[in-house]
Amino acid sequence: MSLPTPLRRASFGALGLVGVLAFAACSTDAEPVSVETEAVAVEETVYPVTIVNCGEDLTIDSEPESVLTIGTSAVALVDAAGASDRIIARAGEFGADLPAGLSNPPEDVEIVDPSDPAIEAIVGTEADIIVGYGLFNASDEDVAAVGIPNVVIDGECSHDAALTDKTDFDAIFADVERLGTVFDTSEVAEANVAALRAEVDALSDVDTSQNAGESAAVVYYFFDGATMSARGGQGIADDVLARAGFDNVYGDEPSVYLEANIETLLDADPHTIVLAYGLYGESFDEALALFLAEPGAENLTAVQEDRVIGVLASDLAPDPGAVRGLEQVLVGTGALEG
């Protein structure tokens, strides 16, 4: 069973360079390698344009000039697509910080609702389009009735149901390109995707042989006092663990977010634990204290051998910030120098 979708509010920044000195995939004793990306010729968007939106066709009649983002992943993806200057309102961030590394962070943009906005708040923004993790306090019929297209992040389409397709880095890149089409900013989107892809390719070449055959788990707490949750096999965290050489303890779970408990973690006794933190503004130390207070946590091998790695939850979300999440896991395991 997965947790309520407010958990899906994470996210993070994109590179804005056509030619980039990518962080080369390297082992701890290797030298960085320069990787340059090339500009790609792209066509302008001709409106109306139809995109695939959670398996359904969605038609955008004209170029959107104002955007309501729901969740920080939406901010990161819109920024990577080259349209963050059009964000006029934000919602659904639940107190989390804006993603790091944004080319144009919408710091002064009003947050109309820290959680899921109702239709009245959505209409009040006068936005041309919504980009986010989906709607809960407003229905699809509500927004359709007022004529506001609602673009849902690919990695959030299923919410509490299993995804049809796993969200991996390629899915994130495709989402950036899709938004580039929506906003007629494909040139910027393609350049950012090329830079991000080069960095992921480089990080994926890091020697992770020391983790081969080992297991790992990503766990987190949605709020202080919440029960422990974990990341299953359908989300980007599973791809991050795989690229770091690990088998995901919860990888057979056909969901992104799931309720877990210390008993299942003790039974699996993973080699490494990735503790995602910052969902409600908490520090790693605060999240670690919650985790270590779990009965029996001190018996976990990862705890005893100091292999609990802290990664911002926003860097394990279906957006460009997951590149940082992968880098942090590689550094935390010693496969990469920090």
Rank of each mutant, 00 (worst) to 15 (best):
F291D: 08
H271V: 03
A226C: 10
F284Q: 09
E187R: 07
D269E: 12
D205G: 10
A313K: 02
R243S: 00
A171Y: 04
E305D: 13
I273H: 00
T185M: 09
D207S: 06
E259D: 15
Y280R: 13
D285R: 06
N211R: 04
I309V: 01
A244D: 02
L290R: 15
A289I: 12
H271L: 08
L203P: 01
I262V: 15
D205M: 05
Y257H: 15
G245N: 00
L265P: 07
G251N: 02
D238T: 09
D239Q: 05
A202V: 04
Q304P: 11
A313S: 07
V206P: 01
L241Y: 02
F284R: 08
E253R: 08
D201W: 03
Y250Q: 04
A287F: 05
A268R: 01
T208I: 09
S209W: 15
F173D: 03
T301D: 13
L275E: 08
V249R: 01
G213Q: 12
E305W: 08
L266A: 04
R178A: 14
A226M: 04
G235Q: 05
D201N: 12
D170W: 04
Y280N: 10
F291R: 11
E259K: 10
D306Q: 06
P254C: 14
Y280M: 05
V256Q: 05
L275W: 14
E199W: 02
S186F: 12
L279D: 10
L266T: 07
Q234D: 08
G245Q: 01
E253C: 03
V182N: 09
V249M: 10
G281P: 13
A313V: 01
R197L: 01
D201K: 09
G233K: 12
A191L: 05
R231M: 03
I309S: 04
G213E: 11
S215W: 10
S215P: 13
D239C: 03
S204A: 02
D207V: 06
E305F: 04
F284P: 13
I172A: 05
A293G: 14
V188F: 07
